[in-house]
């Protein structure tokens, strides 16, 4: 019990790194880490000691991110007209600041579809094997490799300026 919490604390930097690939800005990223940790603690009896905690928590983060994206889309549809009036200036400025600070790589990553970005993040950023990454994403390994190929070709096209 206590051992798990300590391991989660030690994983926080890597959870933040993965969240930074997924979320639009720093606040969203840390919110995502927080909901991931909360879910992990609620479901801690489902974690099997001896298995990889990072893979387990990355899967929780992926699911939390998908849920969050869905509810954001829903909220966006329902509340957009009203919210826009209040927040558009602030969001615009924050987004611009974030874009200025982001590296070319981060900008190119942000333009990938979610599923390709996740595949690239798990393998290239987190260094998971194809087997582990496919398990985190809950897809067959062939699906993972095809996402990796497409994602990386898009990144090369964006960063090197061609599609070779």
């Amino acid at each position: 019990m206590h051992g798990l919490q300590r391991q989660i604390v030690e994983l926080l930097p890597r959870l933040r790194r993965l969240a930074r690939v997924l979320a639009r800005d720093l606040t969203d990223a840390d919110d995502l880490v927080q909901s991931t940790v909360e879910r992990a603690l609620i479901h801690q009896d489902q974690w099997r000691p001896g298995t990889r905690l990072d893979s387990w928590m990355f899967r929780i983060m992926k699911n939390a991110w998908i849920d969050e994206s869905r509810s954001r889309t829903r909220r966006g549809k329902v509340f957009a007209p009203e919210e826009q009036g209040d927040n558009i200036g602030l969001d615009g400025a924050a987004a611009m600041e974030a874009r200025l600070a982001a590296s070319d790589v981060e900008k190119a990553m942000a333009r990938l579809p979610d599923e390709q970005r996740l595949a690239v993040a798990l393998v290239l950023v987190e260094g998971l094997s194809y087997k582990q990454a496919a398990e985190v994403l809950e897809v067959p390994q062939g699906t993972l490799t095809s996402r990796l190929v497409r994602g990386r070709m898009a990144l090369l096209a964006e960063l090197d300026g061609d599609a070779a």
Binding site: L12, P13, R16, R17, R20, V21, D30, V33, V105, V125
Partner: peptide, 19 residues
């Protein structure tokens, strides 16, 4: 390049609320 772009996150301070 992709790996290096996100490496600095590991050296950032973890916000106390997450801890």
């Amino acid at each position: 390049r992709v790996n290096g772009a996100y490496a600095p996150v590991l050296d950032e301070g973890v916000p106390p609320q997450l801890l």
